[in-house]
Computed example of a mutant assay.
Amino acid sequence: MSMQTTDAAATMRATGKPAKKKSSGRLMILGFLSPTLLILIFMVAYPIFSLVFYSFHNFSALRPNAGMTPAGFDNYSYLLSDPDLWQRFVFTGKFVFLCVSLQMIIGIFVGYQLQKSFRGRDVIFTLLMMPMMLSPVVVGFLWRYMLNSEWGIVNYMLTLVGLGKVDWLGQTDAALWAAAAADTWMWTPFIILLATAAFRGIPETIYEAAEVDGASQAYVFFRITLPMSAPVLFIALILRLIDSFKQYDLFFALTGGGPGSSTETVSFAVAKTAFNYFYTGEASALAVILLCIIIGLSLILVRHLMKLGERY
C-alpha cells in the first residue's frame, strides 16, 4: 500500500469522509468568483483609482489635449479653504439629519402598524410603496409644481385655512424643508418595507409571553420590538445615510441649487464643478473628500451594527 493511500485511509477513518483535494476546491471557488471580481475591478476599482489620480492633477475634461499637470494637494487645500464649500457641507448635514430622522421615525411607526392584521392592509401597503418607484427627478419636478409660490396646491391649502402663502423654493430655510419633505415622501416607503419585514420576523411567542406578564404596549414596543429588530433598522439607517449624502438629482429638479447657491449639496457642487466649469481636478478632489466622509461614517455604523448582531 502506498503512502498516499495510507494517508487517505487515515483521513477517512478519522472524519468518516473521503479525503478531498483542497487545491481543486480552491480553484473551483476562484473560477466561480473570477467573473464577479473582474466586473468589480472594472466597474468599481478602476473609476475610484482614476478619481484619486485626477484629484492630484490640474486637468479639464474640456481641454483634454492640454494634458495634466501634477498639483499635489493644491486641489484639496483650495477646496478646504473655500468658505462656500463649508456652507455646502453644513447644508448637506442639515438635509441628511432632517431627512433620515423623519424617514426613520415615520417608517418605524407606520411599519409597526402594518405588521398587524387588518382589512385592506395589503392595499395600503402597496399604495405606500408607489412613491419609491418614481425617479428622483420626477419627484423633484412634481414637488416643484406643488410648492409653487403662486399656484401650487400646498399654498392653496394654506390659504384655505387662513394662512399666508410661503415662498417654499425662494428661501433657504423653506427650501430645505421642501427638499426634506420631497425626499421623505419618496424614501419613507423604503424604511416601512424593511421595518415591516423586521417586525414580522419576531416570533409571536415572545409577544404572547409579554401579554401574559401584563406588559404594556409601550413596554413591548421599546423593550421587545425595537431591540429585536435593531439590526435590520440599522441597515436601513446606513443605506439612507449613504444615499442622502450623495443626493443631487432631487435638488437639481426641485431648486436648481437656489436661491443662489444656498441649497447646493456637496454632490451638487461636484457635478457643477465638473460639468459646468469643467474643473475636473477640483471636482475629483471634492468627490474624494465626500467619498472619505461616507466611508468613514459607514465604517462607524457598520461597527455598531456588528455589535448589535452579536447581541441579538
Results as ranks from 00 to 15, higher is better:
Leu233Ile: 11
Arg223Tyr: 11
Ser229Lys: 04
Arg200Val: 04
Leu194Gly: 08
Pro227Lys: 12
Gly214Leu: 04
Leu193Lys: 01
Ala197Glu: 07
Met228Ile: 13
Asp213Trp: 06
Thr196His: 01
Ala230Asp: 04
Met228Tyr: 12
Ile192Met: 12
Ala230Val: 05
Ala215Trp: 00
Glu211Pro: 00
Pro227Met: 10
Ala198Cys: 04
Arg200Thr: 14
Ala209Val: 02
Pro231His: 11
Val232Met: 15
Val232Asp: 10
Ile206Ala: 10
Ala230Ile: 05
Ala230Phe: 06
Phe221His: 09
Ser229Trp: 07
Val212Gln: 12
Val232Gly: 11
Ser229Asp: 13
Val220Arg: 11
Val232Asn: 10
Ser229Met: 11
Ala215Ser: 13
Ala230His: 06
Met228Asn: 14
Gly214Asp: 03
Pro227Thr: 12
Thr225Ile: 09
Tyr219Gly: 08
Phe199Ala: 03
Asp213Met: 05
Ala210His: 04
Ala230Gln: 11
Ile235Asp: 01
Pro231Lys: 11
Ala218Gln: 08
Ile192Val: 15
Tyr219Ser: 15
Ala209Thr: 04
Leu226Ser: 05
Ile192Asp: 13
Asp213Thr: 05
Phe221Pro: 05
Ala197Met: 06
Arg200Ala: 10
Gln217Ile: 05
Glu208Trp: 07
Ala230Thr: 12
Leu194Tyr: 01
Val212Lys: 11
Glu211Gln: 06
Phe199Tyr: 12
Val220Asn: 06
Ala210Trp: 03
Thr205Asn: 09
Ala197Pro: 05
Pro203Gln: 05
Ile235Phe: 05
Glu211Val: 00
Leu226Arg: 04
Tyr207Phe: 15
Ala198Asp: 01
Leu194Pro: 08
Ile202Gln: 04
Phe222Cys: 15
Gly201Tyr: 00
Ala198Ser: 10
Ile192Trp: 13
Glu211Arg: 08
Ile192Gly: 10
Ser216Pro: 05
Leu226Thr: 03
Ala197Asn: 09
Tyr207Cys: 07
Ile235Trp: 00
Ile206Phe: 14
Ser216Arg: 10
Pro231Val: 13
Leu193His: 02
Thr225Gly: 09
Gly201Asp: 06
Leu194Arg: 01
Phe199Cys: 02
Arg200Cys: 11
Met228Arg: 12
Phe234Val: 14
Arg223Ser: 15
Leu193Tyr: 07
Gln217His: 05
Leu194Ala: 03
Phe222Asn: 13
Pro203Ser: 14
Ile206Met: 14
Leu233Glu: 03
Gly201Arg: 02
Glu208Arg: 14
Glu211Phe: 01
Val212Pro: 11
Ile235Lys: 01
Ala210Lys: 01
Ala215Asn: 04
Phe234Trp: 15
Ile206Trp: 14
Pro203Thr: 03
Arg200Pro: 03
Asp213Gln: 05
Val220Phe: 00
Pro227Leu: 11
Val232Glu: 13
Ala230Lys: 13
Val212Cys: 11
Ala198Ile: 01
Pro231Trp: 13
Gly201His: 02
Gly201Trp: 00
Met228Cys: 08
Asp213Cys: 04
Leu226Gly: 00
Glu204Ile: 02
Ala215Phe: 00
Ala230Met: 15
Met228Trp: 09
Pro227Phe: 10
Val232Lys: 07
Ala195Asn: 07
Tyr207Pro: 03
Pro203His: 11
Phe234Glu: 15
Ser229His: 08
Gln217Phe: 05
Val212Asp: 13
Val232His: 09
Ala218Lys: 05
Ala210Leu: 07
Ala195Phe: 03
Pro231Ala: 09
Thr225Pro: 09
Ile235Tyr: 03
Tyr219Lys: 12
Phe221Gln: 07
Gly201Met: 00
Gly201Ala: 10
Glu204Cys: 00
Ala210Asn: 07
